[in-house]
Computed example of a mutant assay.
Amino acid sequence: MDHRTQGDRMQLAQWLNIDFPLIQAPMAGSQDSRLAIAVSNAGGLGSLPCAMLTPEALHASLQEIQAETRRPYNVNFFCHETPTPDAQREAAWRQALQPYYDEFGIDPADIPTGPGRAPFSPEFADVLQDFKPPVVSFHFGLPAPDLLARVKSWGSKVLSSATTVEEALWLEKHGADAVIAQGLEAGGHRGMFLTDDVTTQIGTFALVPQLVKALNVPVIAAGGIADAAGVKAAMALGAAGVQIGTAYLLAEESTISAIHRAALKSEAARHTALTNLFSGRPARGIVNRFMREMGPLSALPPAFPLAPAGMTPLRTQAEAQASGDFSPLWSGQHVNTSLGESAAEITKSLAQAFAA
């Protein structure tokens, strides 16, 4: 599939062998295989986030998907480089969190360190080889050439996220079959990987036409799209399809907490911001007490993905008291609570954009 076919709104659907050019965004920590299965069975492309899974858990999840759907699905991985732990930086972060530890009676000496998210690796590739998923997508770039070649050898189509024209061109040059244009409105982690400068990040409807003009591979719009009208607008700008995240957080199949679900349905969801406090990397979430008091972007958190270790006990204690003050309440800038209760209903509502 090439740039010349993007004028046909159903080309991406045909290429992916799905009913609608609609992809459910993979959301690590907020879903499991059930959401992916439901979206795929409804005619979209369901996605399984794998960054927080062990190879064993990945194998089990893929077995579940293949047992419950015969439709195409996507598996998603991060491509970050695991940093070397910095004891001095970790100590400074724990010191900054000390007043909150005191508030909840937490002893920081009892808190373990270590990453909570793993990048794509040969071990994950070994698992995938047995399943040969139809689509494999990546965040934060692409894996090493040898790993990418393995994925492509199975016939899997490769997608990856870009937040700038430069990133999109890099992805196309290095083997992505299609590029997800992740606008600034999108919830969760920014897919930025060529720069740490958040001022380079632009909105979806500014990014999409620039990528359509610059690339010879399909462009998939993501960020701030929460209804059929938004889907139509993205397609009118030349997108070959859309990727939807926040809307699916409200599906009954998502695994978010009751606190997170209530926040998405409240007026608090009108105010989101990019923050690196929860993971060490910029991600969009609903502004809460911790973000307000620490400032949403800070030089203090350890490098991604080491920051969550220090935050986890605070989140656990606060959520036990029915508070989301220390939780990453991921959300895009447009929350729509009227699409339906189930993933199938949400998919059907969004797919109205493709009705004749």
Rank of each mutant, 00 (worst) to 15 (best):
G324V: 11
A258I: 02
E172P: 05
I244Y: 01
M235K: 10
A144E: 15
E267Q: 15
K265G: 07
A222S: 14
S137D: 04
A176I: 07
L147F: 07
P301Y: 05
V287D: 02
P112N: 08
A229Y: 12
R9I: 13
A240L: 06
A283I: 11
M10T: 12
D146P: 01
A42S: 13
G340V: 07
G44P: 00
S153F: 10
L249Q: 06
G187N: 04
E90Q: 15
R315C: 09
G7S: 08
I18T: 12
L171T: 01
H260T: 03
L264P: 00
D146C: 07
N74V: 05
E185K: 13
S61D: 08
F326W: 07
G224N: 07
V219Y: 01
R190I: 13
P115T: 07
H334E: 11
P83G: 13
A181M: 04
A168D: 00
A228Y: 04
A236K: 08
A273D: 11
N216S: 15
A181T: 05
H271F: 12
E68P: 01
G44K: 04
N336W: 00
A51G: 05
A214L: 10
R94I: 14
F140M: 09
G175L: 12
K348N: 10
D2Y: 04
V39C: 06
M52Y: 02
A303L: 12
Y248G: 09
S349K: 14
K157D: 02
R4T: 15
N276Y: 10
L16M: 10
E123N: 06
A92G: 06
A269S: 15
F290I: 14
E167Y: 05
A87V: 13
G7M: 02
G310E: 01
D2C: 04
V231M: 11
W154S: 02
K265T: 07
T337E: 08
L350M: 15
A178C: 12
L297W: 07
H189R: 11
P305Y: 02
V335L: 08
S331A: 15
M52E: 13
A351N: 09
Q6Y: 11
V212F: 09
N276L: 11
D32N: 10
L169E: 12
A38E: 03
L45K: 04
L22V: 00
T316W: 00
S298P: 04
H174T: 11
E90Y: 07
R281Y: 13
G310V: 01
T5D: 07
H3Y: 09
E172F: 09
W154K: 03
A176P: 01
K173Y: 01
A322M: 09
L22C: 00
H271E: 14
G245M: 03
V335E: 05
R281E: 06
K173M: 04
D227H: 12
F326V: 10
V217M: 03
H59T: 12
L35F: 02
G285D: 03
P108C: 10
T82S: 14
K232G: 06
R9M: 13
R117W: 12
D19W: 04
V335T: 13
A25I: 00
L350D: 08
P145R: 05
T84P: 00
E166K: 15
I259C: 11
T316K: 15
S266N: 14
A91Q: 15
Q243C: 09
